[in-house]
């Protein structure tokens, strides 16, 4: 497995520090993202049998990038201890009707954070 942990017992002081500062998932990287704000994108239709933060209800659906959050470690590979695979995360806006059909309100939207690897251009 590529990702090793320290396997050190957490002291009370370390617990206190973790509570106060947390674990940053951001990565400083000049690497540009595959997409930009305003781009129309499709969430990939993939069925990975392992860990993923791409829920089924958005797969295959078309949305719009509304914000580029910057570069973060990729949970889908980190959760398998394979790789941190840093990449851009975007807030993607889907019309409720795109996800749930004509019964949904034409006014409502769903916003979800998706990674470069979750998206394809249309």
């Amino acid at each position: 497995m590529a990702i090793e942990t320290s396997n050190q017992c957490m002291s009370a002081e370390q617990a206190e520090a973790l509570l106060r500062t947390g674990i940053s998932c951001r990565v400083d990287s000049p690497e540009p993202g595959k997409f930009k704000v305003g781009d129309r994108v499709r969430a990939k239709v993939v069925h990975v049998p392992t860990y993923t933060r791409l829920p089924r209800y958005v797969r295959g659906k078309v949305g719009t990038i509304t914000k580029d959050h910057g570069v973060y470690v990729f949970p889908d590979t980190l959760g398998m201890r394979l790789d941190t695979k840093p990449q851009h995360v975007y807030s993607v806006c889907f019309a409720a009707q795109e996800l749930w059909g004509a019964e949904a309100s034409a006014k409502d939207t769903l916003h979800i954070d998706l990674f470069d690897d979750h998206l394809e251009p249309i």
Binding site: I3, C9, A15, L18, T50, Y51, P75, L78, M80
Partner: peptide
């Protein structure tokens, strides 16, 4: 569980374990 976060298991590994 919290005491294992980062030190023993990445938090995402823990999420996946419950799934």
């Amino acid at each position: 569980s919290f005491a294992t976060f980062g030190n023993y298991f990445p938090v995402d590994e823990t999420r996946h374990a419950s799934e």
